[in-house]
Every structure is written in C-alpha cells, then in structure tokens.
Amino acid sequence: MEKIRIAVQKSGRLSEDSLSLLRECGIKFSNGMRKLKSEAANFPIEFLFLRDDDIPGYVEDGVADIGIVGENVAVEKGREVTIAKRLGFSKCRLSLAVAKNAQYNSLEDLEGGNIATSYPVILGQYLKEKGVKATIHEISGSVEIAPSIGLAEAICDIVSSGSTLFMNGLKEVETIFRSEAVLIKGTALSAEKLEILDRLLFRIDAVQRGKNNKYILLNAPEDQLQEIIRILPGMRSPTVLPLAEKGWNSVHSVIQEEEFWEVIDQLKAAGAEGILVVPIEKMIL
C-alpha cells in the first residue's frame, strides 16, 4: 500500500505542536531523539524530521509529499508548493523594528536606509509594494544586533511577544507579514496519495473544530425556552430534553470559542441556570 511522506521540523515549538496535532488525529508513531525517519503504526504516513528551512525544497522536489512549516518560511523560500491547510498554531508576525530612541513616523523614514533581515524576499516585496527603496542586508541569526553595531538603521524579524526586541533596545514599528503553521503539498501527488491526504485533512478538520468550539449544557425555564434556543442555534438546532421537575428543560448545544463569553452572558440574562461547559475533543460535521 502506498504511503504519504510528511516533512516535519525536527525540533522546537513548531515541531512539538505539529506532532501533537498529528497524535490528536489518532496517528501513532515514534520520534525518539536524533531519529530522522519514522513510520506510523496505524496510518499510511511516513515522517521525515528536517530543518524547517529545508522543508519547502524537499516538498517541491518530491522527496516529501507534504510538510508542516511556518507560512513565513514557505513564502520566503518561494518553492513550487501549495498551502493545503492553515493549522492555526505557531502564530507570529514579521515586523520592522528600530532603536528605541530613534525617531520614526512612517515607513518613508527608512527611504535610502539599511535594513537587516533573514527574510529578504518578503521584505523586498513589501518595500516594493509600498514604494520605498532601502538596502536589504541578508544575515542569518542575531538580526537584533544590527542597529547597535552600525550595520543597519532597522531590522525585519519574526516577533511573537516582542520581549527579544525590548531586551535588545528595539521597538516594533511596522508589521509586514502575519504567519502561522501551514500544511504544504507538492504539485505532483498521485491519486492514491491525494486520497490519503484528504483522509488526513478530514481528521485535522475534526480536531480543529473541536478546539474552536465548546459543548454546553444548561437548565432552561419553560417560559424562557424559545429565547434561549434563539441564543443557542447549535450546529443545526439545540437538543432540548424535559427535566423531572415540571417547567424546566435541559438544553444541549455547541458554542464557538470566540463567541463563548458573550453567549454565556446572554444565556444568564435569559434565565439559564446550571450552565455546564465541556471541551470537545473532535467534531465531525
């Protein structure tokens, strides 16, 4: 039976989150220390553990069929791969930063200046779109030191919390690209491998929906039932079960995570009691 081969970063937070997602999809595999290859015991997939910068190239060349990388890496490398799925974790941004004491009013302040970065392609495209001309100095690692040693007036680097910039005497001034983990695929997958990929994407969708929704149970008085049902549309409509106590019903539904607290406030105002919220492991439509 044919298998699909996936490239995953061999270490780091992105690797941990990627492997955690695949395990939540019910895929069993081993990834011991220094292990560069592994096969799943219960799904037709083989793992390659690689440097993140190498993953787009391996997928383009067909050594790996699919891979999980940061979108910033996929775009920067410019390989012939497509994004099959946005995964919603390892979110960060690529931003411009200058010295804390530097005067900065707009991007035009960098006209004719020097910017140090490990992402010359993304930065170059951004500057071109904005009509700003600056010299890009490509360096790998320790980009934050560039202004203090006189190499550049600004840097362009990945930012999560901003603490690294702060510790190096820098301030963030422009966000030029927002990134998250993405599942990329090659352009020449066989029909059988595409079918395996579809099965994997189905599992990922179920896990993601589970994370993005909450299962809710509550007690609703009969005279407020219709109002509570209006607040809780659910996947189709809420489940309503009569309680032993006359005049009361148990209502079961699903709430999207982003709407959760607003909906809870509305339910309480409508007379709902005994509200119980349960996490959803997987959700299949």
Rank of each mutant, 00 (worst) to 15 (best):
D265R: 14
R34C: 04
D157K: 15
E2S: 11
V75W: 02
S160I: 15
L183C: 00
E222H: 07
G12Y: 05
G271E: 07
P242R: 09
I66P: 00
L36P: 02
L218D: 01
L22N: 02
N249E: 07
N105T: 13
K130E: 15
A154K: 02
P233Y: 06
P44G: 02
P56Y: 04
L183Y: 01
S148V: 06
A40L: 08
S190K: 06
K193H: 06
S20W: 10
R5E: 09
E80D: 15
L243T: 15
G12S: 02
D109F: 10
K246H: 10
F29H: 06
P44L: 02
F177S: 03
V63E: 10
Q103T: 13
Q266I: 10
E46A: 12
V159Y: 04
L123K: 07
E2H: 08
L285W: 13
A270P: 14
C92A: 14
L276Y: 08
D265G: 08
K246S: 14
A102T: 15
S179K: 06
V263L: 13
E129H: 06
I229E: 12
L96H: 01
F202D: 12
L19N: 05
K35S: 14
V98N: 01
P147W: 00
L107I: 11
V121Q: 09
I6F: 04
I255C: 09
E259P: 02
N31H: 15
S38E: 05
F166Q: 13
I122N: 05
G186P: 06
P147G: 00
D52Q: 14
E257Q: 15
C25I: 05
I275M: 07
V63D: 06
S140C: 08
I149L: 07
L217G: 07
E192Q: 14
G113Y: 05
G67Y: 01
S253C: 08
L19H: 01
L183K: 04
E257P: 03
S161D: 13
A40W: 07
F202Q: 13
D17M: 10
I122E: 01
K185T: 09
G124D: 03
Q9H: 12
L165K: 12
D53N: 11
L200M: 01
S179D: 14
L243W: 07
G67D: 01
L123Q: 05
Q125K: 15
K282L: 04
A152L: 10
G274L: 14
W261Y: 13
S163H: 10
G124P: 05
L200V: 00
L127F: 06
L21W: 03
E258A: 12
W261H: 12
L123N: 03
L123P: 06
K130V: 09
T187W: 08
